[in-house]
């Protein structure tokens, strides 16, 4: 098995699956019907992308595990998603701040992966990038509207932006797993994405009249974050719900 590639594909797929689960928690609880549907749509896009990454991961692993086994029968410490995406939904501002940070990092990552020397990765990335372009527009629109909205929406948005900031560092760090793949032209160089990401989010934060967060300290660094399997206490609770059916009724299908 190509261990680094398997790890890398889990990182890509787990981000999608875990965030999709978080967005799914909004169904029936959205602030308005339109937003309820929109959040579910974004979640479904991510779920579809996660399926493609995990299916490929299962093939690379070569032990007969498919997308379902990887998504529903792995324990928390085997998940490789960034800690940001497992953060609880909080209020609508917190959900949008999380989405905003993620979408822009996700988009840059996928665009870079379109040039991967691994044809399968390039293909999935190209398909996903189209969907994520829309996600990034939508979450930026909300950050601007809430930041430059009422006093209360501004205060809540600023609080969410500041609170989630330390969870963004992971997206721009590369450990041994990634360095090996970067060398072979397979993985995107996450370190090179930080500057364009900062430029993109600063543009939006300025328009939103929000203060740019500037803290240097980041969660999960160096190389002890979600990508390496170190998670916050929130992931276990999320998986309990997400994996319940397959755990309680192994092999259940419909």
């Amino acid at each position: 098995m190509n261990e680094p590639l398997f790890e890398y594909l889990l990182r890509l797929g787990d981000n999608d699956v875990v965030l999709a689960q978080r967005l799914g928690e909004w169904i029936g609880h959205g602030p308005v019907l339109e937003e309820d549907i929109a959040l579910a749509n974004v979640g479904l896009d991510l779920l579809g992308q996660g399926r493609m990454w995990l299916t490929y991961a299962g093939e690379v692993e070569g032990r007969g595990r498919g997308e379902d086994e990887l998504a529903f029968l792995r324990d928390g410490s085997a998940f490789r998603n960034a800690q940001l995406v497992e953060m609880p939904n909080g209020d609508f501002a917190a959900t949008m701040a999380r989405q905003f940070y993620f979408d822009h990092a996700h988009l840059l990552l996928l665009r870079s992966l379109c040039k991967s020397s691994d044809a399968r990765i390039a293909e999935i990335a190209a398909k996903a990038a189209r969907e994520v372009t829309y996600h990034a527009e939508r979450s930026a629109d909300w950050v601007i509207r809430l930041g430059d909205g009422t006093d209360e929406s501004h205060a809540r948005m600023q609080k969410a932006i500041d609170r989630l900031w330390p969870y963004t560092g992971e997206f721009f760090a590369a450990d041994a797993v990634e360095l090996d793949l970067i060398e072979r032209g397979i993985a995107a160089d996450a370190r090179a994405l930080r500057e364009p990401w900062l430029a993109a989010i600063h543009l939006v934060l300025d328009e939103a009249t929000l203060t740019r967060p500037a803290g240097e300290w980041m969660q999960g660094s160096p190389n002890r974050g979600g990508k390496q399997g170190v998670h916050t206490e929130h992931l276990g609770h999320l998986l309990t719900e997400m994996q319940f059916l397959q755990r309680a009724y192994p092999g259940a299908a419909w």
């Binding site: 308005v32 019907l33 339109e34 937003e35 549907i37 929109a38 749509n41 829309y134 527009e137 939508r138 629109d141 509207r145």
Partner: peptide, 20 residues
């Protein structure tokens, strides 16, 4: 029809509600 705070979001909401 649908609710939206402004024209731009109305188009985005329409994309999500009516073109799925």
């Amino acid at each position: 029809s649908l609710h939206a705070p402004d024209a731009e979001m109305a188009v985005k909401n329409a994309r999500d509600v009516y073109t799925r």
